[in-house]
Design a protein around this nucleic acid. Structure first.
Lengths: 156, 156
DNA sequence: AGGGGAGGGTTCGACTTTCCAACTTAACGG
DNA sequence: CCGTTAAGTTGGAAAGTCGAACCCTCCCCT
């Protein structure tokens, strides 16, 4: 029997287990910006070098980044996002927009993203089926995992 | 003068400083599902009680959750998302979709979200101005912070 | 009046991570 | 030969996490 202390099975939790450690998403940010070299990452993120090395290994193992040699002799490497990594960029954009809206007064955004359409990117999360923006009150959760309800473990 | 070791100013980093600690986004998940009571959170997230208490304090202080009394005598509390908290839900949905796509084979999603339109929610991050889905190659970053370029600190 | 929950935490010590500075290795440039 | 750049690794102190046990208040049952 599943022990009653197991947490809710959830892709959010699984995703965070990979990219939820400190600095991981900032690594992805820099790499998406094109700054894939170790010393650049150290400078732009402000992370300790050893931690950064650990995170990079993990992200490469997870298939989110790839490590590319951009110079043999002297050996030099560069990290780049894989397809899976690139698909996390919308998460970053959405998070950035939230920060811009809630963590800052006025319009002192430290970074502006320009969309190819010529406008500043304001990311909106929409429903693929109907195209409408996603609002909390329009959502209903349906747990699929056996033994779980929205409220908690069914056995409880 | 700004020390050259300051990291890139960025709303992603600022947002993660608030909600990027372990369990914080899972707390938000549960609270958005309507499970705002301490023991529910412990069970559904699987976090140590002391850590959870710390996270809850932080999220309330940050204005992401509010603590509501749902019973005086005996005193009982419940955490609920504020408006700012609800606006993080799209981030969770996007992250969940990424996890469903990349961390699982087949269609064994542990949770399905139903949109009010009657379809299963597949979140798509779009540009508010033109409505098109956001792709990496359509984006250009423009740092606004003085002393910073896309590549790194300007002084470097 | 006593006993047993439930709910919402706090406390403790062991364990694990993080942090920072210094060091390493390899190759290049003058 | 000397200094520099890049990409890490190493070591020890400081901070954070974990799990179990404990606490407190009130309710309900008998």
């Amino acid at each position: 029997m599943a022990a009653t202390k197991d947490p809710r099975p959830c892709s959010i939790a699984d995703a965070l287990a990979l990219v939820g450690e400190k600095y991981s998403l900032l690594v992805l940010r820099e790499v998406c910006l094109g700054n894939g070299r170790f010393d650049q990452l150290v400078r732009n993120i402000g992370a300790p070098r050893d931690i950064l090395a650990t995170r990079l290994r993990r992200l490469v193992d997870a298939g989110i980044l790839s490590k590319r040699t951009y110079s043999e002799r002297p050996q030099r490497f560069e990290y780049r996002p894989t397809q899976a990594g690139l698909e996390l960029e919308p998460v970053l954009m959405t998070l950035m927009a939230w920060g811009d809206r809630h963590l800052r007064q006025d319009d002192d955004r430290p970074m502006v993203i320009e969309h190819i359409c010529g406008n500043e990117l304001v990311p909106v999360v929409t429903c693929q089926a109907c195209g409408d923006p996603v609002h909390h009150e329009d959502l209903t959760a349906h747990p699929q995992a056996p033994g779980w309800t929205v409220a908690g473990p069914a056995a409880a």
